[in-house]
Design a protein around this nucleic acid. Sequence first.
RNA 1: GGCGGUGUAGCUCAGUUGGUUAGAGCAGCGGAAUCAUAAUCCGCGUGUCCGGGGUUCAAGUCCCUGCACCGCCA
Length: 572
Amino acid sequence: MARILITSAIPYINGIKHLGNLVGSQLPADLYARYQRGRGNEVMFLCATDEHGTPAELAAAKAGKPVAEYCAEMWAVQAEIAKGFRLSFDHFGRSSSKQNHKLTQHLAGKLYEAGLIREVDDQQMYSKADGRFLPDRYVEGTCPNCGFESARGDQCDNCTKQLDPVDLINPRSTISGSTDLEMRPTKHLFLCQSKLKDQLEAWIDSKTDWPVLTTSIAKKWLNDGDGLQDRGITRDLDWGIPVKRGDEDWPGMEGKVFYVWFDAPIEYIACAAEWAEANGKTEADWQRWWRTDKGAGDVRYVQFMGKDNVPFHTLSFPATMIGSGEPWKMVDYIKSFNYLNYDGGQFSTSRGRGVFMDQALEILPADYWRWWLLSHAPESSDSEFTWENFQASVNKDLADVLGNFVSRVTKFCRSKFGEVVPEGGDYGDQEFALVAELEEKLEAYEAHMEAMEVRKAAAELRAIWVAGNEYLQAAAPWAAFKEDPDRAAAIVRLSLNLIRLYAVLSEPFIPDASATMLAAMNADGAGWPDSVGDALAVLEAGHGFSVPDVLFAKISDEDRESWQERFAGTRT
RNA sequence: GGCGGUGUAGCUCAGUUGGUUAGAGCAGCGGAAUCAUAAUCCGCGUGUCCGGGGUUCAAGUCCCUGCACCGCCA
């Protein structure tokens, strides 16, 4: 039994994510986790909220709540929505956990001991009214270049000229509006990624099976311009993990916290420690997933993320791991995704454009979204969500091809033989041909799932569903029944078994419908099929079943139009 | 401004290391069937593979260049 560690990029705590975020990491990660569990492998699937940084503080202030309280609430909201989408995390953690505090400080200490941390003196805009340093983009003022009055500290949105906060005329804080600002000296820690460039490059070069998208992005950052740059890992904020070297204070770093990009990926590991605590497990139980000296040697670690996250996962986080000098489990495979666009533009959290996860669940069950999003996952290029396409795909694939198959088979059986698997008749050429065809398609399906070729796996699964309809159409039990009821019984018996098999194979994509199908077939604990022939003999003559409700109701034109209208603007 | 991505049938997209008549699903058209959520099944695709050069015996697939759209960065 293989052991597979799976992490999804961790969503930022600030607000509810949209469907583009979902399909870029959590959803395909869940698909893979469910598939691997279905195959009987041992899986550890982790995700968490990314809680630190200025945006979280500001969102909390806007909500009129202490930041810790705000984060706790938003974590609960995100956890509930994740549950709604049936994301099967073994643990949904928080980057603000005490485990992450401890581990982040520990790793910083190790990096310091290895001589990979240097102190840098800097100047930063300080707002007396806010009592804090302001990140560049939280300073606004008049652009010295074009006179635009709302230019940000890092760039003028009007003339696009890059700026420094000190260049702005009449600078003010976007947090309080205060103009009582001044440049103050401050000191920050930098991670010397440049010293690790060769090791990182060698490591990336060893990953010959990675997608081009992933390696090309990593290579670009590694070699572009002056090469890999050292990065600041601290900030002058209150909310975050206090800067320490292990348990010891860090002289000169009082009152500072680690920069969110540094502690966020470390949460992947800390999350496993949180999982252990939440489930009464020991330190050894989680370390066997993360420490190669403590049992993680045979673990295969796969990460899922959007392309914007690739640099952090191919360079920054590995730099932390390698630089620590400790035997942490490094990622084996990175599955990255492009962007999903919404109706001709992009999904946008900040502008509230598109469909958000909570809204999606309000209008349709999770399986509809899971199926469409996964079967249209932006793997090789950006892809596009349109309501017309969504309606057409879901109606055709889920309602017509799969749902209707279940419906026609169970209802035909009920009317001719009752709600019990009928006996009599033998399997003939048509059945043998179907089994052979399904063996072939199953093999292809498994190969695509193993390779995380999401769209191809979805297409293959759909072809498996279609094969059932083709068979039924050719075997025509409704015609056979008139001349040879036993023959019809054999066809129906096989078809009922097909429903059970479909439930097993479809579970990673549409877990709720899968459960409904299994319940209707009065079957449970179904394992992944070793052979299609055997799998189609599980339900024997005499086995009772029931006709399920319509598996997938169709999306009407009226529904589509009303949603189109509802989601045409921006979320308020 | 720099960098990167994309541009293939009406729509959403596949097209591996360049190699025979460029593919899938949907939509559309025709037919079969009537068990079923009017669902299913079968048959039907000449599209300047964005334009222009070039390399090659051979390019959607490599190189140069132009255009369009989209991102990212400073």
